[in-house]
Design a binder for these strands. Structure first.
Lengths: 377, 377
DNA sequence: TCTATACTTGAATCAGCAG
DNA sequence: ACTGCTGATTCAAGTATAG
């Protein structure tokens, strides 16, 4: 562990967790000494009451004291202070990553710009397994936002373009990253088996950030260290790290975690990537994209049934009048459901069952799905 | 076209493009008169060497740090002014969508929150075919961000949850939308074959916003109308629209475009309705109508509890004797209350929880409610 | 040991109406 | 504005249990 620099300047507490308030601690560190800062500040969630799942189980929300601020202006003051302290210790060519949600990220982004940081990208972490919206009142909140910014617009920031491209099947890395949330064995638990930290980030996220924006031997600082994901990945990747954390309990968790982390041997980088399945295309997209018009008539493959497209991507069919349905009731639902009901079958692949007409020809709607899939590749 | 309201208040210029500065025009419109605003404001792109104010005047070159600060504060002033004007004309239960990139969206989001708008979701438009980063210096900027906010935290905003779920293969719609950028036939061209507007948005994006957040007949206003995508999709979907645009050239393009747009037929615009919209049927009606007899035995879905129907439409259950209730007290109340108490749950939908027996089969009482509802139609 | 089913959980600003 | 009652609402993974 380094304790003194050659120049005699105050030393950096490398590969340690420093206990205390991150603003004070950062102010005590030497200026222009850190290559990268990764920050996961409080999101300032404003939860009102309790939330239950449809099965009546209670959602364990983030109601910790550290996430509570009495107003936007209190939160803004806090944000400006820690960002200013972070800016001071960054090297001129250094950079910062901050992660947040819509509750706080707009205020953080504006503060970054106001202080002279230069935004390089905003990155969307698309969660493959987010928590749904249980009451059906909003969209599933399925992503979080990261901001990547250099210290100034003239910084020669580190960007390992080729490494990220290699991580992405040799295609340029994009600003949207699909990654699962942190669960399973990676999620740290306490003695009772409960989660040790409410907002532990997945290592894969940090892996991508550190591979892309640091080199081995760089100094990475995390002012909101929490369960220590930044330190764990930095250690694995042979980067020096500094963690700052206020909560003794989290420090214990992180220290235990870091003691078990083994650095990769140099030159080895895991490259296992699952093969991608064909992307799912909702039928509604054909309507949204204008490939089929609401009101347009679809015919079944056998020609016996007709249905019309609606603006929300469902079909409406006039049911044939018969014993089971003397009034000819209207039938509405997905392409699969309507097809199955009309055929009296347990299931039906609507993509190959329903056809539309173009230029005098009858074509299964699956052709339109193929068209969309080819655009996605 | 409407020109005067019954009350004599100034009329809304429905289904027209109003020429002029959007701040001034919005200030001239009646307050609390618009259901939804969709805004695609200038992005304040900071291309090196040239800084532009929102009014397109060039910022004189000064010291870099001061220069950028000046640019941000000018942009913030502009943002706050148009948002305030937009807020005034929004109905109390109205909502706003704003689209932007990392250059401006953080400032827009913070301004929205500062003015009292209540953010409902931030949505990521993930472009399936973005422009690559040619120099390999950053990540491919493959998305834009939209913010959906209601006028206040108490607004009863419109959200057609079921319709968006239907558009997405019967899975809850998420906050990340994969859609291609506007190209091909949809992209408007001028006489020379060049693109008629630099940032024309795809119709699919507006389709999703308008199907999800408005009903037919709602008033949708776009203060930065541009090539008129908002108006075109609103017209197709049977919504009233108002466009405001400063540039005569864009007005010509949009007017030509709008004149060719054909609205979908009304029947196709109907969208899957929420269950709440169904007429309410008090449980007591099942007893009154003789569908259930007083004294009849109901069983819980899981088979663990039994209750009897009373003549006033309440249930009586013998509570299971146990530690918490050594005397096995009698429990009486609504189908919901009795179910919730027996399960120890915060709430319970008695309609799907309680079952009765007919012809040897166990059926949820909700089937009887369905029967009454179908008679009401 | 393998398979199928059941249960648990995740940074959440998560209801609407009648009286 | 407040109170109280009705009754609507979830997706993907991982782990635990049963067969």
């Amino acid at each position: 562990m380094r304790t003194k620099t050659k120049s005699g300047a105050p030393a950096l507490p490398l590969n340690q967790i420093v206990s205390g308030d991150c603003i004070e601690v950062m102010r005590s560190l030497p200026e222009a000494s850190v290559d990268l800062i990764f920050a996961d500040p409080p999101y300032n969630l404003q939860l009102k009451g309790e939330l239950h799942r449809p099965d009546n189980s209670r959602v364990d929300g983030v109601d910790d004291a550290w996430d509570s601020f009495d107003s936007f202006s209190t939160y803004d003051r806090f944000t400006n202070e820690w960002l200013a302290a972070a800016r001071r210790i960054l090297k001129p060519d250094g950079a910062i990553w901050v992660i947040g949600s819509y509750h706080n990220i707009f205020r953080v982004g504006a503060a970054l710009q106001n202080q002279g940081f230069w935004i390089l990208n905003d990155v969307v972490w698309r969660k493959s397994n987010p928590m749904p919206n249980f009451r059906g009142k909003r969209l599933t909140n399925a992503h979080e936002t990261l901001i990547w910014a250099s210290k100034s617009d003239s910084s020669k920031y580190t960007f390992n373009y080729e490494a990220l491209k290699a991580l992405n099947e040799d295609v340029q890395m994009r600003s949207d990253w699909v990654l699962p949330i942190c669960t399973g064995h990676e999620r740290l638990k306490d003695e009772k088996g409960d989660k040790a930290h409410p907002t532990q980030k997945p290592q894969a996220l940090l892996h991508r950030v550190l591979v892309g924006c640091t080199d081995p031997g760089d100094v990475v600082l995390d002012p909101f260290f929490g369960s220590g994901t930044t330190g764990a990945v930095a250690k694995m990747l042979g980067r020096d790290w500094i963690g700052i954390e206020r909560d003794k309990g989290y420090i214990d968790v992180a220290e235990k975690r870091l003691s078990k982390v083994v650095a990769y041997d140099k030159g080895s980088l895991e490259v296992t990537r699952p093969k991608r399945a064909e992307p799912r295309v909702p039928f509604g997209q054909l309507v949204e994209r204008g490939l089929l018009r609401p009101g347009e008539k679809l015919t079944s493959l056998n020609g016996r049934h007709v249905a019309r497209v609606r603006a929300d991507g469902t079909l409406v069919a006039e049911r044939v009048t018969g014993k089971a349905n003397p009034v000819g009731a209207v039938l509405n639902g997905s392409i699969h459901k309507v097809g199955a009901t009309l055929e009296g079958a347990p299931s039906c692949n609507g993509w190959t069952y329903w056809c539309f007409r173009r230029d005098g020809k009858t074509v299964p709607i699956d052709a339109l799905r193929q068209q969309i899939r080819s655009e996605l590749r």
